[in-house]
């Protein structure tokens, strides 16, 4: 009797432990991220509403697509399409996927052939991975554009493709072959997307109100300098017509759209003495709150289909992720 009870207890403990581990490893963690409106006081200011909506992007699963157009520059070729950045953030499972596409490099290439230019000058991206992609693209042969870069971050590893196949915004994210791989990553818990608006103290004003949405606007050099991240741009001057518009859902307070009208004088010279004016429009559309998913992109990684359990980096990375999950969560 005692032996049977003991064995039953051991079995139950083993089952509970296995189940608990499986839940953790599978990242099953139901949660309700709420909506920004629930966290605000009785009469929040436009600035508080916007910041709450941006902060919400760090906890709610969502999709964001940012398109950047150069409205004017010194080449005479403007306006032209510069970049598109699709982001899938599945915070509930700590998975994040980025697809970056750079369509043009005319301005940088023009000056590079003449006397050199700093490729960071007109980078619209705010993260180091995106910056590396942008520099690659701006130095590439124009005939090879657009250049596409996919990277995916989850527990303990990053998967990437520096020469990803063409893919539409609505398509599943894919990788393909020789420039695709995986690697362990230490900093994988960061969403790695760079918020469209930083915490700041500048005032926003109501710009437009519709049945379901409200749009707030911030403008002027001082306010713009506080609100918009510009980490890789050597800015000499921010013009007073630089402005940001943020459109929120009136009920939930969620961020739906950000339009960043950027007007800067930037130092493009390799000797840091060559200042030019450039206007860019960055339009970010955010949707699929609560149901966006960010699975590991399908396709070939370094010649191995989606990484094999039998060898190669995939097994190593999976073990790293498993150990991290069990050890941390």
């Amino acid at each position: 009797m005692n032996r049977r009870r003991f064995l039953a207890g051991v079995g139950a403990a083993a089952a509970a432990t296995t189940g608990y581990g499986a839940v953790r490893v599978a990242d099953v963690r139901p949660y309700d991220s709420g909506v920004p409106a629930e966290d605000l006081g009785a009469d929040p200011t436009p600035r508080e509403r916007v910041l709450a909506a941006v902060r919400h992007l760090f906890e709610a699963d969502h999709r964001s697509v940012t398109r950047v157009t150069v409205e004017s520059d010194w080449t005479g070729a403007a306006p032209y399409r510069l970049t598109r950045h699709r982001e899938l953030h599945e915070h509930s499972r700590r998975r994040h996927t980025h697809v970056l596409t750079t369509f043009g490099n005319g301005a940088v290439r023009l000056d590079r052939e003449r006397d050199g230019v700093d490729a960071r000058t007109i980078s619209p991206y705010a993260t180091i991975n995106a910056y590396v992609h942008f520099v690659d693209a701006t130095l590439a042969d124009p005939a090879t554009l657009p250049e596409r870069f996919v990277f995916h971050v989850d527990d303990g590893r990053i998967a990437y493709d520096r020469d990803a196949p063409a893919q539409a915004v609505g398509d599943p994210v894919t990788v393909d072959g020789g420039y695709a791989g995986t690697a362990p990553a230490d900093d994988f818990e960061r969403p790695l997307f760079g918020e469209p608006v930083r915490p700041h103290r500048a005032p926003w004003t109501e710009h437009e109100r519709a049945d379901a949405t409200v749009t707030y606007r911030l403008s002027g050099a001082d306010a713009y300098a506080r609100a918009v991240p510009l980490p890789f741009v050597p800015v000499e001057t921010i013009h007073d017509d630089a402005a940001v518009r943020a459109t929120l859902d009136r009920d939930s307070g969620r961020l739906l759209r950000v339009v960043d009208d950027r007007h800067l004088d930037v130092d493009v010279g390799v000797d840091r003495r060559d200042v030019r004016s450039v206007r860019q429009r960055l339009v970010a559309e955010i949707d699929r709150y609560g149901d966006a998913t960010a699975p590991r992109p399908d396709g070939r990684y370094g010649g191995s289909p989606r990484g094999s359990f039998l060898g190669g980096p995939a097994l190593r990375d999976r073990l790293v992720a498993l150990a991290h999950d069990l050890g941390t969560y």
Binding site: E195, R198, P229
Partner: peptide, 19 residues
Amino acid sequence: CGLAPSPPSTNGYPETPPN
């Protein structure tokens, strides 16, 4: 191990350095 899995948080905001 906590009894409940930790939910996503907004601790990562902001991600970019100050201007």
